[in-house]
């Protein structure tokens, strides 16, 4: 792949991933008033199971904005996305610089389309695994469809108040034999809504690499979702990516051909 395309790919992908990740951790269904369970009664595994279950959604259609800060520079990207479960996702960019650039995830395949070059790229095999040397996200991360509980062993480290909400603090360690990008994670899970409020991602050496924080939560149609998520790269001073969900509809019917290569190239 050409170097130029590589860089574009990486930046674009990072944004798309931010969106997908945020969707996965940010939406949950309110199970009605008084559904909250007392904290002390749950084991780490139970907390994770509830979180995984709540993160699942049938489908969603949304319009979002990404604000990328690197030092004093700030770039804003506009995009529209369609998601069905954790198997299908389509993201298309709307801002002038990237208009027409699209990403399509189908199970464990990832496709990209760049309208300027009329270039369709499938990320697979070797590229998937290597990704970009040491980059924030590998393509593999984008395709990680497995539930957290299948990849990590969790330990309940305690209960803390985080950002005004009671949270379980979970420490996750990758299960032997599972290929994960972050061998260690620390997650703050809202005791009532079972939404992750904060997550810390660690390297194999134990060094903190990234932190994602939910800054704002909104409700729509009986669901709670994280409408503003900030991801910080802890190795780069002043570097962050903020995802702001501006419009969202849950459980909408999305025609299957949205998630097709033909649509990708249109």
């Amino acid at each position: 792949m050409m170097v130029g395309t590589g860089i574009r790919t990486k930046i674009g992908l990072r944004m798309a991933m931010a969106l997908l990740v945020a969707l996965a951790i940010g939406s949950t269904e309110l199970s009605g008033a008084g559904a909250a369970v007392e904290a002390a009664d749950l084991t780490a595994e139970e907390i994770v199971a509830r979180m995984d279950a709540n993160a699942y959604m049938a489908s969603a259609h949304l319009v979002a904005k990404l604000v990328i800060r690197a030092g004093s520079r700030e770039i804003t990207k506009q995009m529209e996305g369609w998601v069905v479960g954790n198997q299908k996702a389509m993201v298309t960019f709307l801002n002038p610089g990237d208009r027409g650039t699209k990403y399509l995830k189908l199970g464990d395949e990832l496709w990209m389309f760049f309208p300027d070059a009329e270039d369709l790229v499938k990320i697979s095999g070797h590229m998937l695994k290597q990704g970009m040397m040491g980059s924030d996200f590998s393509y593999q991360d984008a395709l990680e469809s497995e539930k957290m509980g299948e990849l990590y062993e969790f330990k309940l480290a305690g209960v803390e108040t985080y950002d005004g909400a009671r949270c379980y603090v979970l420490e996750a360690t990758a299960l032997p034999g599972k290929q994960v990008s972050y061998p260690k994670r620390k997650i703050w899970v809202d005791c009532e809504k079972f939404v992750a409020r904060r997550e810390e991602l660690y390297a194999a050496s134990g060094k903190l690499l990234k932190v994602s924080r939910v800054e704002e939560v909104k409700e729509k149609g009986g669901r709670t979702y994280a409408s503003r998520v900030v991801m910080e790269d802890k190795l780069k001073r002043g570097s962050s990516t903020t995802l702001i969900i501006e419009q969202v509809e849950f459980d909408v019917k999305i025609p299957d051909d949205v998630f097709s290569l033909r649509n990708l190239m249109r």
């Binding site: 040491g134 290929q179 990008s181 991602l201 390297a203 060094k207 690499l209």
Partner: peptide
């Protein structure tokens, strides 16, 4: 400085 890479298993690694 930090050398950011991936382990053989694909996990992020940061070597100070």
């Amino acid at each position: 400085f930090t050398l950011v890479t991936r382990t053989r298993d694909g996990a992020f690694q940061a070597i100070d």
